[in-house]
Simulated scan of single mutants.
Amino acid sequence: MTETERTAAAPAAEVLAAFEAATGFMPVDEGLALYAAAVGAARDTNLPLLEVGSYCGRSTILLADAARQAGTLALTVDHHRGSEEQQPGWEYHDASLVDPEVGRMDTLPRFRRTLYAAGLEPYVVALVGRSPQVAAVWGAPLGLVFVDGGHTDEHATADYESWVPHLAADGLLVIHDVFPDPADGGQAPYRIYLRALAEGFAEVSAHGSLRVLRRG
């Protein structure tokens, strides 16, 4: 996608403000690239857009607004117990997201409040569970698959293998946190990105650590 096309697909000011206000880690420039990809995929396929790893709903806002415009839905897959790096004692742990009754992470209440505040709840179906289990009972094509779940090789590979078979022929695969240099971040997303290229995907765009791909 060219810069002109990306600019044309920029979110409305209120959507961008909601994204920036939401809890999460995606930078604004990468969010804009994700939004442009989602708008294009929703427009071209009119199929649901799926996100693996929604955390508190920051990136979900962008997918939901893209889905709203196209008259489709954004689907989110997350167990909402936090990924490895979000557990107590790790760098990205947020104690405010721990359920005091069970003593475990629970991002679902914050996720729901995020979408409610943005006015986008009607355009999102939250699938609460582990990615491979949800994918095993999913049977419909998808216009976009956005992989941003667990960052171990086990989880990134499982997300790729579970959801890419459901991607429509003209759909887009988007992978977040792709770092070719190990000094910049974990390598599991980079490895599934390389696998996608080896298996016939072509890179459409790269912005920061976000990669947008389409089957060649």
Rank of each mutant, 00 (worst) to 15 (best):
V147G: 10
V124I: 01
L173H: 11
A74Q: 01
E3S: 14
Y92V: 05
S131C: 08
A22I: 06
A126C: 12
G40I: 05
M26H: 03
W138D: 02
G40D: 12
P122A: 06
G139E: 14
L172S: 08
A70Y: 02
F179L: 06
H176T: 01
G200K: 09
R211S: 00
D44Y: 05
D94Y: 09
I192A: 01
D153F: 13
A67Q: 00
T107P: 07
V98E: 10
A198P: 09
R195P: 03
A70V: 03
V134T: 14
Y55T: 07
V98P: 03
E20G: 10
P88A: 04
E51N: 12
A196Q: 09
R211N: 01
F146D: 02
V147D: 02
R43P: 00
H93T: 06
L172C: 04
Y193S: 03
M105D: 04
E199F: 12
A136T: 04
W138E: 09
L210A: 01
D159R: 12
T114H: 05
V137Y: 12
P141D: 05
A158T: 05
V128A: 15
T114S: 05
L172G: 01
A8L: 14
V128S: 14
G82Y: 07
A126S: 14
H155K: 15
E161G: 08
Q87S: 00
R113G: 02
V145M: 09
L172N: 02
R215T: 02
N46S: 15
E161V: 04
V39R: 15
P182R: 03
V137S: 15
G150D: 01
A202P: 08
R104T: 14
E20C: 13
G150Q: 08
T114M: 02
I61R: 05
R110Q: 13
W138S: 02
A74K: 01
Y35F: 13
D184P: 08
P109R: 11
S96V: 12
A196N: 09
V102A: 02
S131A: 13
A41F: 00
S96C: 09
P122S: 10
P88N: 07
H176P: 00
L115M: 01
G103S: 08
A41H: 00
L120I: 04
D177T: 01
L173G: 09
G139I: 05
L75M: 03
W163M: 04
Y55H: 15
P132H: 10
W90T: 12
D29H: 14
G103C: 02
T152S: 15
G185M: 05
E20A: 12
S54V: 10
E91P: 01
A74Y: 04
A38N: 01
V204F: 07
P189Y: 00
P165M: 13
T4D: 13
Y193P: 05
L127M: 14
S83M: 15
L213G: 06
G24D: 09
P180R: 08
